[in-house]
Amino acid sequence: MIRVEDLHMHFGGIRAVDGVSFAICSGTITGLIGPNGAGKSTLFNVIAGHHQPTSGRVFLGEEEITGLPPHELFHRGLLRTFQIAHEFPTLTVRENLMMVPPDQPGESLWSAWFHPGRVRAREAEVGTRAEEVMDFLEIGHLADEPAGNLSGGQKKLLELGRTMMVDARIVFLDEVGAGVNRTLLRTIGDAIRRLNKERGYTFCMIEHDMDFIGDLCDPVIVMAEGRILTEGPPDTVMADEAVIEAYLGKGGGQRPPRPVHRAPA
């Protein structure tokens, strides 16, 4: 589904992502873990089109998508959520969800004036889908609440809901469980699993909660210092010597110095 080839993202002298290659298979829930500063979020931002990579290539299916802007990726079915939930604070939860589907006729002034029937029909269709999503995530009671008033956890649910408004091919979740209480975390986890099983969504998620990861994800990719340390099923990965070392820091200074990678021109 997603294939990343030798991706580099350097900020000045900092190699936030330093030669990463991996593939995400269709229909999986891939976990991306690693200590703080490992380059997970940067990797997400590069794949999702927020940063131009220094070098390397990203493919979605067979198509190269390296450096495409976020809205183009959205149209290709690559969606993401943010570590700090993004929402349209002055729009209601329902309106937030209804904003997501692209190319609605109501957005063109021409159709708004000359095809009001078509606009209404599409609006109703999108509205029904928003109702379904809110039912699925059990946030129906918040439908007419401005999204700015939601709690942190509810905003995360709304973020997840946004990805359900279109037929996504792959969804990148950036710490969807961070700062969310246990009960809500379970709801989110259930939603992710059901989306994966029932609707065939592919997920790739950054997460710190190991139980959550172990419960949901297979395979798990471990990053440290901008590189992939190891990948595999959660049990194997979490038992891995190098992973424990990266997390607990058995003296980062003892690592052998890396050869300097030159970005291919």
């Binding site: 809205h71 969606l79 993004h86 904003m99 997501v100």
Partner: peptide
């Protein structure tokens, strides 16, 4: 976020 939605 608008860029990541169906907003043109």
């Amino acid at each position: 976020l608008a860029l990541l939605s169906g907003i043109n």
